[in-house]
Design a binder for these strands. Structure first.
Lengths: 337, 337
DNA sequence: CAGCATTTTGATACCGGTAACTTTAGGCTC
DNA sequence: GAGCCTAAAGTTACCGGTATCAAAATGCTG
């Protein structure tokens, strides 16, 4: 039991009711559904609220009404600005309707995600948006049992928990690989993020493309690197040593491609002449470095917006026609390829 | 009243109690303070919890116990990875103690912050960490009245709401400006973020330094730019047109310095020979570009960690000896100056 | 083994709201 | 103005837990 803090005697609805000389119920109505209270009383109530500095107790409200206006968003990390757009998409939908968004970060481990989900379910949030698509059995069961509406939006999972609004990491990786092939690159290397479920899907997409092209899967071309700028440098080092004949590098993690580009600059490798570089995520940075880096523009904002909309639809009791939404992606061709 | 979703008949403590043939109270104790229940009963309870898939209702718990294990963190934006370290610092302290962190973004407008704070207070969170230091009167009053422990950690405010764990934006900006002067730069330009309260403090710090150096404040050297990479480019353009004699540029916003560096590259300006560049925040990027950018290393992680610790101290009822903590900063000298 | 302190469990009231229902107050028709 | 209908306000019970105090079980001492 962690908390031992007690809320210091805060103002209760009863206090407001007494002050306005009405019943608690009238106060409740004046706050939640003002139209249903006659103007005179309503003003008296609102005045009392103002005078006493009353702040509605959502705890009690949610408990009693068995509904909540809080939506939880579970992200693997906040280190990355790639999620900012998604957060904005969600907020833009929720805010005008009076819902509140609470974000929590959970890493890539299903066990950690489980703890976060458990906390949200314990708080009886109105709905949950999960970026991850790999969940522990306990988490899945808990979500199902609690009946919490859920949207997954980091990938398109084979077996959705509930609703989905995302792009397909596998399709996107495949498309970019094919794009590089179409541009004439023969030896396309792939830098993969270790221990990242979305990284794994991307890796499969790369394989798909090679298979479709009828090219053999050269294990030297598939490079496992660490995250961040460092990963890009590692990939270049690997190519220099082990597959100098590679003519393109597709980086499957956000800033990784920039790290690779910087490393090429350090080594005096011309991009794209010596080596073409493509990135998975179209961060703002990609168009500011030179050469600009070809990348996949993902529907980050849309993912947020549609996730929130789907959630609200479900919360309001309407069933959804298509609970799995593939939002696609686009390839942005720049000077690096 | 937004939500109309009803929690579908979830398992209650009463159900667990019946199944384990004990009183609700025993279940409550077995979950919150296992030591206080004898092993036999405790196991029976835990087995029942497991079998029924019971998830504790924090709503009810918080309402009844008038305490919460949720801590709210209010950030101006999630677009920026600079807050990731702070989030991590907070989590690292809270997680092992069973507290949960919920993050919300609020922009730079006190009115928006007020809405977020109000939501957190309505949820009766155990404590609040605010990055902003400019609050609406309503928000301040609400926090005071509710008795919620609060830590501000984005700057050292003149009049703290409660506790503070931060560095001083003003001091940091002053120190960097003095550093540039010490390196011999004579015409130090300053690129400021418009409409950002922390930006304003930094601007004052720059002024302080000039005053201390006995240099006149040349208005052409103080440049207001937009945020992001673009802002840096704008600053360079301004210098080229209006103050070509400037020999150093101090950028007061995160990626701005990188944008400035890129723009210098485009124009063929040598850094630092033609123009030295310094950045406020020591993002990872700063050491990966070339030349590496001189910047201020801020105690982002510490700010999170100490904020959380202060909050817990207060929550546990102990008073703090020093409720305002200045965590300082360091200058990282790199090739750009 | 009685007598008392301590630990473990249970009964009851209440946390601060809202749902559902009842009562009262108005408004209209004839 | 009686009769009926609707709107507005109030009453009561309960949401799902925990605090608090009382009761029962256990242990210890002499």
């Amino acid at each position: 039991m962690p908390a031992s803090n007690k809320f210091t005697g805060s103002v209760r609805m009863r206090d407001v009711a007494e002050r306005a000389r009405v019943s608690r119920m009238t106060v409740s109505r004046a706050l939640n559904d003002p139209e249903s209270v006659k103007e005179g009383l309503r003003n008296r109530v609102l005045a009392a609220v103002e005078e006493l500095g009353y702040v509605h107790n959502h705890l009690a409200r949610s408990l009693s009404s068995r509904s909540s206006n809080v939506i939880g968003l579970v992200l693997p990390s906040l280190e990355n600005s790639i999620f900012a757009q998604t957060v904005k998409g969600v907020s833009d939908v929720l805010r005008p309707l009076g819902y509140h968004l609470m974000v929590t970060e959970c890493g890539n481990e299903p066990k950690d995600e489980e703890r976060v989900i458990s906390a949200f379910v314990a708080q009886r949030v109105g709905g949950l948006i999960l970026h991850g698509t790999h969940h522990s059995a306990v988490a899945a069961r808990m979500l199902k049992a609690s009946g919490t509406p859920v949207v997954e939006n980091g990938d398109i999972p084979a077996e959705p928990l509930d609703m989905v609004a995302s792009y397909s990491n596998r399709d996107a990786a495949k498309a970019m690989t094919l794009h590089l092939a179409r541009l004439g690159y023969k030896q396309i290397a792939f830098a993969a993020l270790a221990a990242n479920p979305r990284g794994a899907s991307r890796s499969l997409g790369y394989d798909d493309a090679l298979a479709e092209l009828g090219r053999p899967a050269d294990p030297r071309l598939k490079i496992e690197v660490s995250r961040g700028f460092t990963g890009g440098a590692e990939a270049i080092a690997h190519i220099a040593t082990n597959v100098p004949e590679a003519d393109a590098l597709f980086c499957a993690g956000d800033v990784m491609a920039v790290g690779a580009l910087f490393e090429c600059n350090r080594r005096g490798w011309k991009v794209p002449d010596r080596l073409a570089i493509a990135s998975f995520d179209d961060l703002e940075l990609m168009r500011h470095v030179s050469p600009g880096i070809t990348s996949l523009q993902l529907p980050r904002y849309e993912m947020g917006r549609r996730s929130a909309e789907m959630l609200l639809t479900r919360i309001e009791g309407r069933e959804l026609p298509v609970p799995v939404l593939d939002l696609g992606f686009e390839i942005v061709q720049r000077a690096s390829t």
